[in-house]
Simulated assay, not measured.
Amino acid sequence: MTETITNAIAVRDNGPGALVAQHRSDIELVMPSHMQKRVGAWIRTTQGLLRRDEKLLKAAQNDLGQFMSVLLDAARLGLEPGTEQYYLVPRWNKKKRCTEVTGVRGYQGEIELMYRAGAVSSVIVEVVYSNDRFDYRPGRDERPLHNIDWDAEDRGQLRLAYAYAVMKDGATSKVVVLNKGHIAKAMAKSDSTGQDWSPWKTDTEAMWLKTAAHRLAKWVPTSAEYIREQLRAQADVAAEQQPTALVAQLPQPIAIDEDEAIEAEFVDEEAEQ
């Protein structure tokens, strides 16, 4: 029934939506195993985004190959496209002189990849407004102290963004703190800066959070690299245990008392005479 509905939607779309359904097997192939059971819902969500957003649909139609490449990247990471995990953004391509779809990993996506690695127990990513109280001194403080007046009607202007993780052994990762200058440099590198549809304009706070989370990802294991390290560790343990197991199968030497050995030697010599 689910498959029938998906196909019906694809036929009605007769465009990028149909292409997504046609490449279901490719999408499922690159997805993490825990996401593969939800591939149908994942596809329907993407098709729904195209129907609701004319600019996104037009950008996808302009370059179907680029559109599918972005979707496969989201699928490979196991993130939901069109959410704060993974933005689908129409971007102007100067060479092609048209818009195309680009993928932007959101702050929730960055956090999801950290949790999925299995090395952290919690990830904290927050923004600080000018009326908040924020105190952190590297070398003195393990974690920032951030106090918010929740009764205040206006917390002021965005001032800082910070992020850190608490590892499963209780240790605190590096604390990343970004000010307006750091955010401005990150924003300047974005191709969407200045465009009306840019997430820097439509969801400014989320982009501050995303920038802080992205910087933290350099100091905290993400799913791909953590899995590789785990596999290497397992291989090293197996390599160390293999010789031990082989030795255990060999006949064990018999312990002989030194005096008995000498006495036996004399008996043998007398026997030979």
Results as ranks from 00 to 15, higher is better:
Glu3Tyr: 12
Thr4Ser: 13
Thr6Arg: 15
Ala10Asn: 05
Val11Asn: 07
Asn14Asp: 09
Pro16Leu: 02
Gly17Lys: 05
Pro32Phe: 15
Gly40Ser: 14
Gly40Asp: 14
Arg44Phe: 09
Thr46Leu: 12
Leu49Cys: 00
Arg51Gly: 06
Arg52Ile: 05
Lys55Ile: 05
Lys58Tyr: 06
Phe67Cys: 03
Phe67Thr: 01
Val70His: 01
Ala74Ser: 13
Glu80Ile: 06
Tyr87Phe: 12
Leu88Met: 08
Arg91His: 04
Lys94Gln: 12
Lys94Tyr: 10
Lys96Gly: 09
Lys96Trp: 04
Arg97Trp: 08
Glu100Asn: 09
Gly106Asn: 02
Tyr107Met: 04
Gly109Leu: 00
Glu112Gln: 14
Tyr115Asn: 04
Tyr115Trp: 13
Ala119Ile: 08
Val123Arg: 01
Arg133Val: 15
Pro138Ala: 11
Pro138Gly: 09
Pro138Met: 04
Asp141Tyr: 04
Glu142Pro: 04
Glu142Asn: 12
His146Cys: 10
Ile148Pro: 07
Arg155Asn: 09
Leu160Glu: 00
Tyr164Gln: 00
Met167Arg: 10
Ala186Trp: 06
Ser190Tyr: 03
Asp191Lys: 10
Ser192Met: 03
Gly194Asp: 04
Gln195Gly: 03
Ser198Trp: 09
Lys201Asn: 11
Trp208Val: 01
Arg215Trp: 05
Thr222Ile: 13
Ala224Gly: 14
Ile227Phe: 11
Gln234His: 10
Asp236Asn: 13
Val237Arg: 15
Glu240Ala: 15
Glu240Met: 11
Ala248His: 11
Ala255Ile: 09
Ala261Met: 07
Ala264Ser: 07
Glu265Leu: 12
Glu265Thr: 05
Val267Met: 09
Glu272Thr: 10
Gln273Asp: 14
